[in-house]
Design a protein around this nucleic acid. Structure first.
Length: 805
RNA sequence: GCCGGCGUGGUGGAAUUGGUAGACACGCUGGACUCAAAAUCCAGUGCCCAUUAGGGCGUGCCGGUUCGACUCCGGCCGCCGGUACCA
């Protein structure tokens, strides 16, 4: 008979709720372990089978750590602000808050049906004013410390929709909804100065246990680049501009200069003859989105300004061009072009027939740019030097003349923190009529998002909040001065940048979280989520954490000690699951048919946690068969514990049991759940062949199965031990190192590296005796006949290899 | 293009201080049980040759180091992820 997952799972989920089994303990005599999932955005689609993969992994670790005597913090919450809810509101006229609440209830029901050991008393919702009060508070602190500032930044403005669009809502320069034209329009926006933390965000990656490729992605994103900044004078004026270059050594080969089309200097230097062409080019460039600009990278375009710069070492005239292959936002927004040794400059110079002068030996400038190292030529005082020496010498020269110095730049840009949207945290700022700006003091937070019956575009590009007059307009009670609230809201990244702190003290009304509790729980010991957040979320959260660290509000430099990214679960056809492909698996259906335990076992057994693996209905059934097999081993047809389970131990399972405890414990610790579960299967296979089942081993096995299949294990535990308590806090089984190996081991005999015979021998057998055993073996003698033994390699307890010819 | 990862049976995957390749599972084949089927239990299952005994081949491809290579080195091919005019 198989177990009834529907009744068992319901029974134990109710038990855990009523018993408050997973309420977080904070016993100072125990260690603290913080196992965190990336909290989900509660979409209208409901839970996907990909979600439980990471959740099961952290749940297994949480349950094992509780049994190992730790206080475990294992919370769940909702990253519930975001675009889809607002779109839904725009489409239907409904309140995004209600829609979001409904989605949360669906997610929560689904997550609870999987039996995760979350402490639901600590549930967090980023859209809850009690939560976003502190999101806003952190923002005001950033303003106080000059890490938030306002700047004119271009947005995707769609006049037809009367709204600003996110990049992903713009397709080929048209709005995704309606296909209306979209323009780049500068708007005043809040920016966060994440670049001030660039070096620390880079350096402190050394301190965390993250997958190397994720660290690499962050390093690339930060994009630290060391080079030199060099000043160029504009001919016949007192104007000048700086360029950034990593190849100062090629300065003698700089034959022209390029400014970004947006550069303000262009207005001052453009000649009357070129003015029209330059203006036309700038207008054209302004129409293109960043994406379109990069799309055109095959065919570089640009226009001559008519002006010349002076090369500071050759004193030659360098024509100044504008071209959109130079980005205003990187470096100084202007470059010295060295076409002989830079591929982009080479392509541009060829197209516009600009001078290409090689200054390094090697390569052929008629064909392509040479970007390698080599001996410098045509370069006066650095001739004959290699790249490094030439760079050092020329930078010293420039420093002496005070026209250049070493300089570090970053690819990382400041964080555009404003959204012209309704469904987000209001930015807690008032713009007064006298032109000043102030943040809302702590005692007046939160600035609550006003309820409104109709969310509609403002028509000006501002958020829908701008039309809610009674909310926007404020008067200072003391001075009577009028002001307007900032109508921007925060991006979705805001709430998720610090939620892991609030889980530690979620109901604290007076501070973000109690410092003592933060000290106990931080850093997060294990953080699991999808790789799609490898860069932005993790970088933003690290930035805020470091800022709070500087304010002495959190005790650690880094928030997440160990990070792991679960892989994707693909559809049975090996493609990404999607509605349109019809390959989506609904977890509700799986839980109903096979049970939550089966789903958990299957998702952990299908392969390594970080691999992308296709769903398989057959594999799922196999996991259920394993659980049934476990059940039948211990429970008979009458639903009674089998009398094979006994306190007598005939030792036949001793070795495999101790091996199982060791391997399962270590594999779970290392997140290698697939091999850990396979070891549980090995034990069950052996147990089926054994006469009696020692109670101690049965109990130990059920405990090891419990983190993966908790409902079934609770039920088995209750039946086998007659206990009325949960298995959750039973001490995790231990193994005895001395019982791991048998006295007799199988050894392998090889001739010329080829396996020819096997034999059993004592594991402590001497080298000589083992060699003798090999040479005297019948099979070996056959293979050695007529050959001369040249060499014998003996690995004690393992093998003998005889080299002969 | 650049950075990172991967490539093992019919399938998902095990195994790397270099030492029995294919653990565990799915699938398949056979047997037991059954009137029969399902379920279950037991056995077999990398490929090729051979009736057996046995032999040969085998971890993407080519080469190297080694007594011995899935594992280390060099060169290719393919797939996946990230990123992209970053000066």
């Amino acid at each position: 008979m198989s177990f009834n997952h529907r009744s068992i799972e319901k029974k134990w989920q109710n038990f855990w709720d009523n018993d408050q089994t997973f309420k977080t303990t904070e016993d100072e005599n125990k260690g603290y372990f913080y196992a965190l999932d990336m909290f989900p955005y509660p979409s209208g689609q409901g839970l996907h089978v990909g979600h439980p993969e990471g959740y099961t992994a952290t749940d297994i670790i949480s349950r094992m750590k509780r049994a190992q005597g730790y206080n475990v913090l294992h919370p769940m919450g909702w990253d519930a602000f975001g675009l889809p809810a607002e779109q839904y509101a725009l489409d239907t006229g409904n309140d995004p808050a209600e829609f979001t609440e409904k989605n949360i209830q669906t997610f929560k029901r689904q997550i609870k049906s999987l039996g995760f050991s979350y402490d639901w008393d600590r549930e967090i919702n980023t859209t809850d004013p009690d939560y976003y009060k502190w999101t806003q508070w952190i923002f005001t602190k950033l303003v106080e410390h000059d890490l938030a500032y306002e700047a004119e930044v271009p947005v995707n403005w769609c006049p037809a929709l009367g709204t600003v669009l996110a990049n992903e809502e713009v397709i080929d320069g048209k709005s995704e909804r309606g296909g209306h034209p979209v323009y780049r329009k500068p708007m005043k926006q809040w920016m966060l100065k994440i670049t001030a933390y660039a070096d620390r965000l880079l350096d402190d990656l050394e301190e965390v246990e993250w997958p190397e490729h994720i660290k690499d992605m962050q390093r690339n994103w930060i994009g630290k680049s060391e080079g030199a900044q060099i000043k160029f004078d504009v001919k016949d004026t007192n104007l000048s501009f700086d360029v950034f270059t990593t190849r100062a050594d090629t300065l003698f080969g700089a034959t022209y200069a390029v400014l970004a089309p947006e550069s303000e200097l262009v207005d001052s230097i453009v000649t009357p003859e070129q003015k029209e062409a330059v203006e036309a080019y700038r207008t054209e460039a302004n129409k293109k989105s960043d994406l379109e600009r990069t799309d055109l990278n095959k065919n570089k375009t640009g226009v001559f300004t008519g002006a010349y710069a002076i090369n500071p070492v050759t004193n030659e005239d360098m024509p100044i061009w504008i071209a959109d292959y130079v980005l205003a936002s990187y470096g100084t927004g202007s470059i010295m072009a060295v076409p002989a040794h830079d591929e982009r400059d080479f392509e541009f110079a060829q197209k516009y027939e600009l001078l290409i002068r090689p200054v390094i030996e090697g390569g052929d400038v008629d064909k392509e740019a040479y970007t390698g190292d080599g001996v410098h030529i045509n370069s006066d005082f650095i001739n004959g030097l290699d790249q490094k020496d030439a760079t050092d010498k020329i930078v010293s020269y420039l420093e002496e003349k005070e026209i250049g110095q070493t300089k570090t730049t970053y690819r990382l840009r400041d964080w555009l923190f404003a959204r012209q949207r309704y469904w987000g945290e209001p930015i807690p700022v008032i713009h007064w009529e006298d032109g000043t700006t102030s943040t809302i003091p702590e005692e007046e937070l939160p600035v609550v998002l006003p309820k409104t019956t109709e969310i509609k575009p403002s028509g000006t590009g501002e958020s829908p909040l701008a039309v809610i007059e009674e909310w926007v307009n404020v008067v200072d009670e003391k001075t009577g001065m009028k002001g307007k609230r900032d109508t921007n809201t925060m991006p979705q990244w805001a709430g998720s940048s610090w939620y892991f702190l609030r889980f530690i003290d979620p109901h604290n009304a007076t501070q973000l979280a109690d410092p003592k509790k933060l000290e106990q729980w931080l850093p997060v010991d294990l953080y699991i989520g999808g790789a799609e957040h490898a860069v932005l979320h993790l970088l933003y959260a690290r930035f805020w954490h470091k800022f709070l660290y500087d304010l002495k509000l959190v005790p650690t430099k880094e928030p997440f000690q160990k990070l792991f990214n679960q892989g994707m679960i693909l559809g049975e056809n090996n493609e990404k699951m999607s509605k349109s492909k019809g390959n989506v698996v609904n977890p509700d259906v799986v839980v109903e048919k096979f049970g939550a335990d089966t789903l958990r076992v299957y998702e952990m057994f299908m392969g390594p946690l970080d691999a992308a693996i296709a769903w398989s209905e057959d594999g799922l059934e196999g996991s259920r068969k394993f659980l049934d097999r476990v059940w039948r081993l211990f429970i008979d047809e009458e639903d009674k514990v089998r009398d094979r389970i006994t306190t007598y131990n005939d030792q036949s399972l001793e070795v495999v049991y101790h091996q199982t405890v060791k391997k399962v414990t270590e594999d779970f610790e290392n997140l290698q759940f697939n091999t850990g579960i396979s070891q549980l299967m090995v034990f069950i296979n052996a147990a089926y062949k054994a006469e009696g089942l020692p109670l101690e081993y049965v109990k130990g096995f059920i405990q090891m199965l419990a983190p993966v299949a908790p409902h079934l294990s609770e039920e088995l535990w209750a039946k086998v031990t007659q206990a009325s308590d949960s298995i959750a806090y039973e001490q995790w089984p231990t193994f005895d190192e001395t019982k791991l190996v048998t006295d007799e081991v199988e050894v392998v005999f090889q001739v010329n590296g080829k396996l020819r015979a096997k034999a059993t021998a004592s594991k402590t057998i001497s080298k000589e005796a083992l060699e003798e055993l090999a040479l005297s073996h019948e099979k070996m003698q056959e293979h050695l006949e007529g050959k001369t033994i040249r060499k014998v390699i003996v690995v004690p307890g393992k093998l003998v290899n005889i080299v002969a010819n």
